[in-house]
Amino acid sequence: MLDIALPIAFTLVSFALALSLLRLIIGPDLPDRILALDTLYINSIALLILLGLYLGSALYFEAALLIAVMGFVGTVALSKYLLRGDIME
């Protein structure tokens, strides 16, 4: 059962990554790009966990945790830059 479910899940998550990447490219504004980047982070966590399930190894969990933390910090920093950067003008 899992050998059928995993490839399907890989396909779906890959499409999700592709769509987020498209939104990252077409923009049109800075917040859209930040949001797309955030979604890319979360999608890549899903992909990593699926890879861990596929290979039967729990090693990838650490990477997923790091991506989650760094993704959150990155998103917050970019949003804060937008909030602050405008005031300086």
Binding site: A5, L6, I8, A9, F15, L19, I42, L53
Partner: peptide, 17 residues
């Protein structure tokens, strides 16, 4: 669970797009 999870992930990105 995996299929449902992957589906919702895709729905989120479709919404984003």
């Amino acid at each position: 669970l995996i299929i449902i999870g992957a589906f919702f992930t895709l729905v989120g990105s479709i919404g984003l797009y």
